[in-house]
Design a protein around this nucleic acid. Sequence first.
DNA 1: CCCCGAGTTGAGAATAATTTTCACCCATAT
DNA 2: ATATGGGTGAAAATTATTCTCAACTCGGGG
Lengths: 289, 289
Amino acid sequence: MAAGALGRIQTETPALPEALRRVGEAILADPAEAARSTIITLAERSGSSPATVTRFCRVFGFAGYAGLRVALATETGRAAQANWDMGVGHEIGPTDPLDAAIGVMAAADSRLIQETAAQLDAGTVAKVAEAIVAARRVLIFGVSTSGAVAGMMGGRLRRIRVPCWSHADAHEALADAALLGEGDVAIGISHQGRTREVLESLGEAGDRGALTVAVTSFARSPLAELSELVLTTASRETTFRLGGLAAVHSQLFVLDTVYVAVAQRTYEQTNEAFELTIRALESHRVERN
Amino acid sequence: MAAGALGRIQTETPALPEALRRVGEAILADPAEAARSTIITLAERSGSSPATVTRFCRVFGFAGYAGLRVALATETGRAAQANWDMGVGHEIGPTDPLDAAIGVMAAADSRLIQETAAQLDAGTVAKVAEAIVAARRVLIFGVSTSGAVAGMMGGRLRRIRVPCWSHADAHEALADAALLGEGDVAIGISHQGRTREVLESLGEAGDRGALTVAVTSFARSPLAELSELVLTTASRETTFRLGGLAAVHSQLFVLDTVYVAVAQRTYEQTNEAFELTIRALESHRVERN
DNA sequence: CCCCGAGTTGAGAATAATTTTCACCCATAT
DNA sequence: ATATGGGTGAAAATTATTCTCAACTCGGGG
């Protein structure tokens, strides 16, 4: 997946060691320029060495500098076509007029989703979906905001008859994880991929032989390394939205694709299940006035 | 001028001598592939030599092969984006290849957010934010998916010291609503605006004198009519995403703007609260590996 | 029928870019 | 103090790219 490279670079660069980080920053400062530069020029501009730039490419899964270059150029082209501002997103300050802030947020969120889509690997999504369809049990782990996402996904899967649970309580989650086995699926959601509760539950699930899936923004996080399959989300923070709050959109989107893939594999069943569910919920609705 | 390189190649290639023409044809046959190839690979694929490929680059005004490569990649990206924009508004069927479905979904979601932002009234958002800042208590109501959204918003507001609750249990919600009074705020979230539990809780809150705010896609729904302020979300359903599932993005976005507006009004407090919260959560994270 | 010259071409040399190797540094744990 | 291990850049090794040049083709004239 060469696509989505810039998003990945944006997300992971701050977590990189000194020299690699400078390379990432140099690229983000002007991706188009970077695409035009040789590895030597870029190394100089970032105050590092060609060797480090090569390493940087490897970190992001490219075979070498040529790969990165082409990916950058491709995204530059995309951005130009979509009329995006390639610059790093604006920050929202305390004095900004609200309607300006709304515009910035909408642009950021909508772009975030596009980046997430661009870097999403359809093959992995398909694998996850197939495993879910075949599983006897599916567990989804997440705490705090990611927990709410886990809850939503759980509810949606249950509505199409997937035997699926997600717990707000970390202990219950762990206990349930211990009961999983071969052929089951465990999905862990954590923006940074470093939430202990999620790591423990997913680790337990993996030990029991379940397929482990990570949904995280950091491809090199503990959660990602622990999981058999990784679905990476994109995210960029804005001042007031710290803590991966923007990442929710990204997580939801990724899980949406999984949901759709599952639904595609069980079409008739799904439609029928929808029917039943909607009828059941109808009684909680008041009549149209 | 990197712009229009593919077009120029298309136009001029037939007029070129034998070997150069083969190079042009090889590129036109698959520009993306060409961008990924080294000069040697491309020479082989076109049945010519590296020297000829270099010559080809010069003919089109590039300094060298690297220039051509980047130009090709850029235009490939442009084309991909243009294609992608076409995906807006399509339905997803059971047989659609997953990557196409992903594109359609991303286009739909990202557009949804834009639409939501466009129709959002900054004045109303500001009023809601001011009321929240001044309130003794803030309650957020929602069930099912909207309940998860309510939970997220509640958590976020609590992190910036807003006295805010959201209940998964409808009875508790109703009981709490009965304790609200003048100067408090009640927010009801419901995609269709017809969920009985939310209507009841919000009605109760209104009766007690609290400011009532609706977050719904339907401006003329019972929920909207019952509320003093209405924040409308946008949503369009796609086959498999019935039940207002796509609306989550929209709801989150609207509440995001409220959150940002609240944070803007309590800047110092907010930053300090963030500090504390992040420190508290840090112990639940595993160390960077 | 042979020769010339302009225009093309690819082989291989020359150069430049990229990748790999390795020794060093620095922080951390023992 | 002393290993240990990750991160780094200098320099060697490799590979890609560009340049040089001799060979070739193809018309047109002697």
